[in-house]
Every structure is written in structure tokens, then in C-alpha cells.
């Protein structure tokens, strides 16, 4: 749960900032998608834009989280988890 929050929450905040900055300088109706002018309504463009920003930022957070794993976790043990004893198998 906490890890999920670590990924989704900061990315949500940063996506909000990115959305604000991007669509302040770029008119959503002047965007081109695959060479075609976007034909969605402005609200749809803004919404999709936000979700896309969020997804991208979440990807970055996820990567950070991934790199934060301790050697112990990578070696197959949870953090703070004692090594599995052979008897348990």
C-alpha cells in the first residue's frame, strides 16, 4: 500500500503541475496527433493529457521505487525478513 502511494501520489502532484504548465502555453485545440489535428473535445484532450502525464510520472516513480530495493530484497528476501530456513521448505 505504501509503495503504491509512493508511486501514484508524487506522480499525481507532478502531473498536475505539468498539466498546468503545458496547457497554459499550448492551446489544446492546436495539437496534432499522428499528423492529424486532434478531434477530441477540449475537455477530453485536457483529461487525456492529465492521465497521460500521470502515467508517465508514475512510470518514473515506479522506476525510482524499483531502484530503491535493498540488496536483501533483490536476493529474494523481504526487507527485515529472516532468511528462509531450509526446514521450512
Amino acid at each position: 500500500m505504501q509503495r503504491l502511494l509512493w508511486v501514484l501520489w508524487p506522480s499525481f502532484i507532478v502531473a498536475g503541475v505539468a498539466e498546468g504548465l503545458f496547457f497554459t502555453v499550448v492551446n489544446p485545440q492546436e495539437l496534432y496527433l499522428f499528423g492529424e489535428p486532434v478531434h477530441f473535445s477540449t475537455l477530453a484532450t485536457l483529461s487525456i493529457g492529465f492521465l497521460a502525464f500521470w502515467a508517465i510520472c508514475a512510470g518514473s516513480s515506479l522506476f525510482t521505487c524499483f531502484l530503491q530495493k535493498t540488496p536483501g530484497e533483490i536476493n529474494g528476501r523481504g526487507c527485515g525478513q529472516p532468511p528462509a530456513s531450509p526446514a521450512a521448505r
Binding site: 500500500m1 505504501q2 528476501r77 526487507c79 528462509a84 521448505r89
Partner: peptide, 23 residues
């Protein structure tokens, strides 16, 4: 049995890593 018990251990380990103890 070996496979299932080892996967159970992994799940347990994941539980500890992913969920904080929240009262």
C-alpha cells in the same frame, strides 16, 4: 508441495514489504 510452499513464502515476504502495519 515444494513449489506451493515456496510460493507461499514469497507471498508472505511480499506482504511484509508492501503493507505497512497500520492500526
Amino acid at each position: 508441495t515444494e513449489t506451493s510452499s515456496s510460493s507461499a513464502t514469497t507471498e508472505q515476504a511480499q506482504d511484509v514489504a508492501l503493507f505497512e502495519v497500520h492500526k
